[in-house]
Write a protein that binds this DNA or RNA. Structure first.
Lengths: 357, 357
DNA sequence: ATGAAAGCGCTAACAC
DNA sequence: GTGTTAGCGCTTTCAT
């Protein structure tokens, strides 16, 4: 437990040292290194060469303090590890890097977690701008607003027009899914909601409901099971729906994670997909096409959403007025193998799942 | 496209303003706000009260520049969204917050991605210390070392003793799994490797091999399929193993993700688990207990690993000598329902998966 | 094209 | 206990 000797590490030289080596002032060195005008070609090249040789790299903290810029963005999300968020992150990170920015991530562990004051402070101060994938609750946005940092949301509440938003058309996407199922002949269609504190979940549910009613099918509340976009919630919801005395012939889920959970529960119960049960998801996460049978789903351009968020944010930072407060990207129904016409009523079969011991 | 008016946002006052309001010097205010000694009770309380009222919060950039401290840690990982990494992150974030630190995340998108110089710079400069979950390739650690930031690795190469490491005993964990399978009567046991550029994958494979040979079973290379810890690689590996002319009666996988993929492939092919095939994973990710049948697996204390990493890192920051360069946590075999004695040779059955059209 | 001066907002180190 | 001074490493602004 004795004090640890600071490890000897090649110290990073500071700007003044590079400038001295090049025989110029710090300002000239700064201009050269930041690729700014006002330095003659030969001087610029010499500075750059020396900086490389000396292993110089700018101190971002000092740079941020002096200039308020540091080419860092942040992305905050609940359920950072979910496939949907992961895909948005991929798109955002790539776009940021392409523009010469780095993206830092902040994960809220629990959907119900408060945004601690320190978090807002940290991300708002470390980054030049932030992308939020958060439910519109707990006044997350109030806290972020107070931090005074440029902010853009992805799939947030549409009512929240205070910040620019990148969204997809969950309503029409869901209705497309319903039309597909109904075209196959389904009439008893179950629905597993998403976390309805997220605007997307509300929209999709409306798509489900109106998809039904526009065909004159009456809403049956027992066919709607509450989920929160997570796998455990999907398992539970699917169990409830599939053990109904008069179960649905198809289940549409607010997202793919829950749809995959539904497929797992179905197979556990001995139902075959799509023969005994059709399943449709929403998102088109990578796993959707990897399972067996591959999942029919409503594709959201997740990576593009991340990319658009970054680009819009960068435009805001550049002082360019954002055209529209909410950019809505289209969805696309991807029909795969998890949907088929329903069996005739009463002809439902069960496989015996377990052999007698 | 006209320049955007900066949004009017309640400006955050600076330390000097709080100090002035309280009628003290900036230093006294600083001491009070940072909970440091040298301020009388009443003065301290008045400063805190005023700061709260005025909505003061310290400028972390200035604070870092002046003191080199900002109570921020960073965690860098490849496959940030994988369940294993996610769990480690949960443990790390909680532990950090408990200690009054915040944790920022940096995700490498692609296992083969180089660590761009800017990344090292960013995380090394923004944070006071970093936790790395990275393969020992591409000289990731060389870059991190150059940044001169306190660093700790999780499950990294054991040969890499330059940095403290939190690891689990992959070798014994894997051997326990093998002993379990062999105790059930399995002799033809397939193995799906992890990404062997990670030390964990090498250890586990050795556990598999020695588990076999210590029982006098000869290694059969055709029963070893290469995976990289991801689901698609697991699917492919499982397909290869299960379509062998003389397939294994059990498959042990380097991690749970691949084990779950194996279960999916098995069911697709019409094999029942555990009757026709036993499957064992490694990690005990949350999904392992949620699938049907629940997966037998070797549990790693993932959250605790994150917690230990944070605590060790904080100790390093505090100048406390780290006791041992590598802290190895134990694993635990969790026997669930995916393992059973093998069928008699030749009695393997297949369910007809699809009904005749 | 280049440089000098003056901070950015905070804290270390040392007074008193 | 409290205040003063002098930076942290960079960039802004304004000279030249």
């Amino acid at each position: 437990m004795s004090p640890m000797k600071p490890r000897v590490t090649t110290r990073i030289p500071k700007l003044a040292e590079v400038a001295r080596a090049a025989g110029v002032s710090r300002m000239t060195a700064s201009r050269a290194l930041n690729n700014r005008p006002g330095v003659s070609r030969p001087v610029r090249e010499e500075i750059l060469r020396l900086a490389g040789e000396m292993g110089y790299s700018v101190n971002l903290t000092a740079q941020k303090l002096a200039s308020r810029r540091n080419r860092i963005l942040a992305l905050v999300a609940v359920q950072m590890h979910s496939p949907y968020v992961s895909e948005v992150v991929v798109g955002a990170v790539r776009a940021a890097r392409m523009a010469g920015y780095e993206m830092l991530l902040y994960s809220l562990l629990d959907p119900d977690e408060q945004l601690p004051a320190t978090v807002t402070q940290v991300i708002g101060q470390i980054a030049q701008g932030v992308i939020a994938l958060l439910p519109y609750t707990h006044d997350y946005f109030g806290a972020l607003r107070a931090a005074g940092v440029p902010l853009i949301t992805v799939e947030s509440s549409v009512e929240l027009t205070e910040f620019p938003t990148i969204a997809t058309d969950g309503y029409n996407g869901a209705r497309d899914a319903m039309r597909h199922l109904m075209a196959l002949g389904h009439r008893r269609i179950g629905y597993i909601t998403g976390n309805e504190r997220m605007a997307s979940a509300v929209q999709r549910r409306r798509g489900y409901e109106n998809g039904l009613t526009e065909r004159g099918i009456r809403l049956d509340r027992t066919l709607i099971a509450r989920g929160d976009y997570t796998q455990p919630s999907g398992i539970e919801a699917a169990r409830r729906l599939l053990t109904l005395r008069h179960p649905p012939t198809a289940i549409f889920s607010g997202n793919d994670v829950q749809a995959l959970a539904t497929m797992a529960v179905a197979s556990e119960i001995g139902l075959r997909i799509p023969e005994d049960l059709s399943v449709v998801g929403f998102d088109d996460i990578p796993q959707a096409s990897q399972v067996h049978p591959p999942l029919t789903t409503v594709r959201q351009p997740m990576q593009q959403m991340g990319r658009s968020a970054v680009n819009t944010l960068l435009a805001m930072l550049a002082g360019i007025e954002v055209a529209s407060p909410v950019l809505t990207l289209p969805t696309e129904l991807v029909v795969r193998k998890s949907t088929a016409p329903p069996r005739k009523e009463g002809k439902r079969r069960r496989r015996d799942q377990r052999r007698p011991a």
